[in-house]
């Protein structure tokens, strides 16, 4: 049995403005995440990938379909049970600064999951664990008394990661955790995430729009397009033999940092939009 199972999930958001169209964000999405693996969900803005990440944690309620972790249905849990369940499933955000309460000290932010889920530990033990977790994610202990605004973007993201892992979850959703960071910092954060995953054998749902990153970190990839998963495959296989035209388009739009490998994007040069390219091309 997989750790996380998402089954035929639908989600429609009501129109934002009067007269606008309701947004069909998820149209029957199914996927599963195995214990300890990284499943990447890749897609472009508006594809529904971020909604999927939140649905997997029931931060957004679904219209139909089921989300199960460890065989337990999140949709039918009452509020208290769900809150307790959250110790086991966490979220790391795309915007490190916005995800941290600007008025709370770093240490208090990281301590929060423990205070909520294991208050019996007591202040001294919680303090100890917070400091050691900070160190674990590569931050000096002295940061515990600082405010989020005093840290750089990369450091803020380390705080976000520390908060996510301190309750030892088995499942973490990473929502574009590196896309707002500088290149060299990006690599460090990805390496940290991989290290922590190996150490604590967590399963990751890695939401991203960047093919390079996804290829680097994932075991399997699910490709999302307009609210549907069009293809799910082990990473290597997907890159070697992309089946769906949209996957092919995505792959061809990759820009290699090696000038000796020119990109193959010309594949849909005749089309004016991505949609055109996808829809006027027969699946291989």
């Amino acid at each position: 049995m997989s750790l996380v199972e998402i089954e035929d999930v639908h989600k429609v958001f009501p129109a934002r403005q009067r007269g606008g169209e309701p947004v069909h964000a998820l149209k029957g999405v199914s996927l599963h995440v195995n214990e300890g693996e990284t499943l990447a969900v890749i897609g472009e803005s508006g594809s529904g990938k971020s909604t999927l990440g939140r649905v997997a944690l029931r931060l957004i309620d679904v219209d139909s379909g089921a989300v199960r972790i460890d065989g337990k249905d999140l949709g039918t849990m009452d509020a208290n049970t769900l809150r307790r369940q959250r110790a086991d499933m966490q979220l790391v955000f795309q915007e490190p600064f916005e995800s941290l309460n600007p008025r709370m000290a770093i240490g208090a932010i990281v301590a929060e999951p423990l205070q909520i889920h294991q208050p019996q530990l007591g202040t001294t033990e919680i303090r100890r664990q917070v400091l050691s977790t900070l160190e674990h994610v590569g931050l000096p202990q002295s940061f515990a008394d600082r405010l989020p605004g005093e840290l750089s973007g990369g450091q803020q993201q380390r705080v976000g990661i520390a908060r996510a892992i301190i309750s030892r979850p088995r499942f973490v959703v990473l929502d574009e955790p590196t896309s707002s960071l500088d290149l060299s910092i990006r690599a460090q954060i990805l390496a940290l995430l991989a290290e922590l995953q190996r150490e604590y054998s967590m399963a990751y749902l890695f939401v991203s729009h960047d093919m390079h990153t996804v290829e680097w970190v994932s075991d399997r990839i699910a490709v999302m397009y307009l609210g549907e998963i069009v293809e799910t495959k082990p990473t290597r296989e997907l890159f070697d033999a992309p089946e769906h035209p949209y996957t092919q388009t995505l792959l061809s739009a990759r820009l290699s940092p090696d000038p000796r490998e020119p990109h193959a994007y010309k594949a849909f040069a005749g089309h004016k939009t991505v949609r055109d390219a996808v829809e006027n091309q027969e699946p291989a």
């Binding site: 690599a187 390496a191 190996r198 290829e215 970190v217 000796r260």
Partner: peptide
């Protein structure tokens, strides 16, 4: 891009995932 001379350029290029490469955790 192929043979960077300056250490900063080398570091920058090394931090980009290359196609077909897996993340090296030991770093």
């Amino acid at each position: 891009m192929v043979e960077p001379q300056h250490p900063y350029t080398q570091r920058l290029i090394a931090s980009v995932p290359k196609p077909g490469e897996k993340l090296d955790v030991s770093r």
